[in-house]
C-alpha cells in the first residue's frame, strides 16, 4: 500500500466482488426472513440461473438484458418447486431438518446440471471490455454494468417490500407469522412468494457471477461460503443486512491479498463472521434474535 490509489483500488475491487455476492445473499435472507430456515440450496439456484441465462444468451442469442430476467424466472421456479416438493413437508420437523434437506438439494441440482450440460466451462456470448482508467485507478465497464444490474434488482425488491401490499404482507409474516395469519394474510402464499423471489435473486446473481467468470456445475458452490458469510455478517433475515454484508465480505476478501495472503482469501470471510458475531450476535443489521 504505497499509494492511496492502491487502497481505493482494493476497495473498489471489493465493491465489485461484493455486488455479485449481494443478490444470492439477499435471496438467502429473503427466504430466511419468512420461513426461518437457512436454505443452503441457494448455491444450486445460482447455478440454475447461470445456466438458464446461458442457454438464452449463448444458444438462442438473447441479449444479457433479456437473459437476466429469464435467469430470475427459471431459478425462482426451481426454488419454488424444491420448496413445495421437498422442503414444505419437512417444516414440521424443524428448521434444521429443512436446512439439511437443502444441502442435499444443492447437490441434486448440481448434478441435474451436470447430467444435462456436462462439466465443461462455458462463457456467455459477450465481448470482454477493457478497463477504464481514472488517475491510475481501473474500473471495468462490464463489472460496473453488473453492479448496476445487481443494484436495480435489489432496488426493485426494496420497492416491492416497502411500497406494495404484497411487500407489507411479507414484512408482516416475517415479523410475526401468527399475527399476520390473524390479520388475514395467508402465510403459505407469502412463503411461496418469498421463495420465488429469493431463488430468483440467487439465479440472477448466479448469472452475474457467470458473466464475470465462466460457468460450470460448480458455479454456485464456489461462492456459497462467501454468500453465507455475507448473510450472517449482515444479520440473518435482514435484506439490507445482506447487501451490507456482501460489501463487507467482498472488500474483506480483496483485502486478504494485501493484508494476509491471497491463498487465505476465504479465511477473511470467516474472520468477518467471527468478529461481527462476537460483538453483535444478531449480525450488523439483524433486528431480533
Amino acid at each position: 500500500m504505497e499509494d492511496w490509489r492502491d487502497l481505493v483500488q482494493v476497495l473498489l475491487n471489493g465493491v465489485m466482488a461484493g455486488s455479485v455476492l449481494m443478490l444470492p445473499a439477499i435471496g438467502f435472507n429473503c427466504i430466511f426472513a419468512v420461513l426461518r430456515y437457512p436454505n443452503f440450496a441457494i448455491a444450486g439456484f445460482a447455478t440454475i440461473g447461470a445456466f438458464a441465462g446461458w442457454v438464452a444468451n449463448a444458444v438462442y442469442g438473447w441479449p444479457i438484458g433479456l437473459a437476466l430476467p429469464l435467469a430470475f424466472l427459471a431459478s425462482g421456479a426451481v426454488a419454488l418447486l424444491a420448496e413445495e416438493a421437498a422442503f414444505r413437508p419437512l417444516r414440521a420437523a424443524g428448521p434444521l431438518t429443512v436446512a439439511i434437506a437443502s444441502v442435499a438439494m444443492t447437490i441434486l441440482l448440481e448434478n441435474v446440471i451436470r447430467f444435462g450440460f456436462g462439466n465443461d466451462l462455458r462463457g456467455y456470448d459477450l465481448p470482454i471490455l477493457r478497463d477504464w482508467r481514472f488517475d491510475g485507478i481501473r474500473v471495468n465497464p462490464q463489472q460496473l454494468q453488473n453492479t448496476g444490474y445487481a443494484i436495480v434488482a435489489a432496488a426493485a425488491l426494496f420497492l416491492l417490500l416497502g411500497f406494495s401490499r404484497l411487500g407489507r404482507a411479507m414484512r408482516a409474516v416475517a415479523d410475526n407469522p401468527v399475527l399476520a395469519d390473524i390479520k388475514g394474510v395467508d402465510p403459505n402464499r407469502i412463503a411461496r412468494v418469498a421463495v420465488f423471489i429469493g431463488g430468483g435473486l440467487a439465479g440472477f446473481g448466479g448469472m452475474l457471477i457467470g458473466i464475470d467468470t465462466s460457468i460450470d456445475p460448480l458455479t454456485g458452490f464456489r461462492v456459497v461460503l462467501s454468500v453465507f458469510a455475507a448473510a450472517v455478517v449482515g444479520g440473518l433475515g435482514s435484506i439490507p443486512g445482506a447487501a451490507l454484508g456482501a460489501m463487507v465480505v467482498g472488500v474483506g476478501e480483496e483485502m486478504a491479498g494485501v493484508v494476509l495472503q491471497p491463498a487465505y482469501r476465504s479465511v477473511t470471510a470467516f474472520l468477518a463472521i467471527l468478529l461481527v458475531l462476537m460483538f453483535r450476535p444478531q449480525g450488523l443489521l439483524g433486528g431480533r434474535n
Partner: peptide, 9 residues
C-alpha cells in the same frame, strides 16, 4: 486460493 471467482487485486 483456487476455485474463487474474483482475482482483481
Amino acid at each position: 486460493e483456487s476455485n474463487k471467482t474474483a482475482f482483481r487485486s
